[in-house]
Design a protein around this nucleic acid. Structure first.
Lengths: 211, 211
DNA sequence: GGACAATCGGCAGAATTCCGCCTATTTTTC
DNA sequence: GAAAAATAGGCGGAATTCTGCCGATTGTCC
């Protein structure tokens, strides 16, 4: 195998998520290191920086919602300790204000779960290559920015597919908010239980994953 | 009356929104100028910059979804023409990637409708005073910016309602991208014409509005 | 271990949505 | 301004989704 495409630190308290992400990254040739908490990640970052090997990580992927030190705190800490390492934040619930805050605080990007692996990988690639407009936000005199709308590629853009993903996202977010409590989700989304069950099954959502 | 607190350009294609915002701003002592399209706003910006009076506007508030030149395009253009004028973008639908793109492109803030007038005004005030973390994106030692985005209230959160809004948003966006060209939208969203027609009617979308 | 609450899946009729076919109207093209 | 292309809407059978009912499981609390 060639030299790794880059070294990525993945921070997420959910084992399933870590597994999935590390698999995606691994298959793409990245060297992956995992952390289940902000504290652990912070220590790994210290190690990597202390070690002789280069500057440590090429990018960090971190969930916003973490027990203990949360994603934003970790972002702030990392930006001051290792300004050159791009930090990508992820969240399961779409919170605009959080995204704005994160990007203003220097996050490289802010991903909303669930996302397609290709999209995720594309973002990591960009981060590793530091190929982003966010690196030169003030260079407004540069040629008229290209159609900066970074639309996803290799993603099914049919209405049906987009609606399906959105439905999944909404249900997932509600499940997350209510820790997998079906009754609460039924109530919030105003869905008969039978319908909710079917949709969850269709999207492969299991309440156990949100408990 | 005292000297105006600042001069604000409001860009929104919906008259009701313009009226509401201009009232809020007016009552707070701001001088308000209204535009219904990105093109019109662009021309007003030219006027203001050309005129002897100061540097034109103290802040610009712009809807993302506009017929013709959309909010992001207008943002880009404005950032290069008038880098010192903070641009606040607004949107009715919460789209994280859009918010990220906007902030990376230099938007001062990204507001999600609907919001309370007080919070809207607070954001404008911050913009006029240039009191924002986005002005010093690399100053990571500063405390995290306060939550500038307002969450919805009095909005139907049922899955059905949310999905309906999303469907409308997607179709609207596609119509916008293709200037109301039905065939192109059919192709992009992979919808039979008959189905697209019905959905457009359901959501009250008329192609004429996007031509 | 038993009672009770929460959750799940099969089944099937009701309700809704999908979408081809045909025709009318509007817009473009030459 | 006539032919061609694009768009819109009525109609209705096909396909899908919705969702109440019922019994089976699973988890929880004495």
């Amino acid at each position: 195998m060639n030299a790794p495409a880059g070294r990525i630190l993945v921070v997420d308290d959910e084992g399933d998520v870590r597994d999935a992400i590390s698999e995606w990254l691994g298959l793409s040739g990245f060297e992956v290191q995992l952390a289940a908490s902000g504290e652990a990640a912070s220590m790994m970052l210290s190690d990597a920086m202390g070690a002789s090997e280069a500057n440590g990580f090429d990018a960090i992927v971190c969930d916003v919602r973490l027990p203990g030190m949360d994603g934003l705190s970790f972002l702030h800490q990392t930006r001051s300790r290792a300004p050159d390492v791009p930090v990508i934040l992820m969240t399961a619930h779409g919170d605009i204000s959080l995204a704005v805050t994160a990007v203003q605080a220097g996050a490289f990007d802010f991903l909303e779960k669930p996302y397609a692996p290709e999209q995720f990988l594309a973002t990591v690639q960009r981060a590793v290559l530091k190929d982003s407009a966010s690196e030169v936000p003030d260079d407004v005199s540069s040629p008229p920015a290209p159609p900066a709308v970074l639309t996803d590629q290799n993603i099914d853009l049919s209405l049906q597919a987009q609606m399906g993903r959105h439905e999944r996202t909404l249900i997932e977010a509600s499940l997350l908010r209510h820790s997998g409590n079906i009754s609460a989700v039924m109530d919030e989304l105003e869905l008969p239980r039978r319908t909710l069950n079917e949709k969850m099954q269709k999207h492969g959502l299991r309440r156990a994953d949100f408990a």
